[in-house]
Design a protein around this nucleic acid. Structure first.
Lengths: 192, 192
DNA sequence: TATATTACATAACACACGTTATATAAAATA
DNA sequence: TATTTTATATAACGTGTGTTATGTAATATA
């Protein structure tokens, strides 16, 4: 009982997302969101208790987008998929990438680390990684996560020497993965 | 002709640095700086035209600190030195690291890239890297810069799985460097 | 010594912000 | 139809911000 709802939670988060995408999360204001929707700030406060609650919902949305990328890049190779999704996120949402990954964001911190055990399990079944101990697999994974993060940061910052295409970036990623795996293989057979 | 100066440019930048170190550059305000110095905002405006000029001077100071770290870590091996300095900066000034490296900071962008030619020259004289073409050296350097950035970001964010000591981090860095170099060496001899 | 300069304190201005009080009109309900 | 509910608009409040106007006292210069 009351007038028809003109502005939904989703619309509000949409508007906030658009602002965050270009200006960063810290530069979101209630008035900017309202202006983007063509409304006053009143509908925002009907749908969200305060700014904290709104930003929380926005961060969930952003994480949803990044998970969507992971689904879209899914090929069955978890290494490849994570790298591809991370690079796409860094390329297509560079401002949000910096906001989420480079600030000490607790949402993302857990999300990333919760995937590690699953990745290790996947690695165990990879024929290319046969014969490695779990500790060795963990070292390989850690190195690749570090490299992938560094590459994504450079992409988001635009600090790579050339303008690489997505495929060229993936090539660097898999080339370095090969470096790490090959080297681990060699030092393994050498110590025998 | 006028009263004795009580607050110098250096003192002002010092105060700004202290705030930036814990709260980040974006949370610096004129009043906070004044309060930290026990003054009003007037001395700041005597020494700096406006906030932009002050932040500019602060960024120069921060870059100076990072360069000082590079000097302190100097051992003659430029690979090692850059990695060590970058890791120390990420560990000891994590907030500033995020502010400078992860924002799209044009100061830092140039500073980092201007070092590449010198590093390539150094690599040419490294016996361990003998026989590589310049393009191959560039690829090796790029991979290491990416890895070093990723590692530094993880350090600054506290997202590494364990609490690594500085030495353990350096070990990962040099281990990966060996991986990349060894692999490059092998694919070179294979194609012969 | 008188004057001019200037480093600083104080206080104000204009603005943007989060949030809230009040008003209004539309829909549901009685 | 009269009443209640509520989604929205408008406008205000308090706070923090960058910046500036004004006043004051200390120093150098004449």
């Amino acid at each position: 009982m009351g007038p028809k709802t003109k502005f939904t939670k989703e619309q509000i988060i949409d508007a906030a997302f658009e602002i965050a995408e270009t200006e960063g999360i810290d530069n979101i204001t209630m008035r900017k969101i309202a202006q983007k929707m063509g409304s006053s700030v009143a509908p925002i406060y009907v749908n969200f208790k305060d700014t904290n609650e709104l930003i929380g919902a926005l961060v969930e949305r952003i994480i949803g987008v990044s998970q969507q990328l992971l689904i879209e890049e899914s090929t069955g190779n978890p290494f490849h998929d994570m790298g591809s999704a991370s690079l796409r996120f860094a390329m297509e949402y560079s401002v949000l990438f910096r906001d989420l990954v480079m600030k000490n964001n607790n949402y993302m911190k857990g999300y990333d680390e919760k995937m590690i055990p699953a990745l290790i399990e996947e690695m165990k079944t990879d024929p290319e990684l046969e014969g490695f101990t779990v500790d060795e697999l963990k070292t390989i994974l850690l190195k690749m996560r570090i490299f992938q993060l560094g590459l994504s940061v450079m992409v988001a910052n635009g600090t790579l020497p050339k303008d690489y295409e997505k495929q060229a970036l993936m090539d660097i990623l898999s080339s370095t993965a090969n470096d790490v795996i090959l080297s681990a293989r060699l030092s393994k057979s050498k110590s025998k």
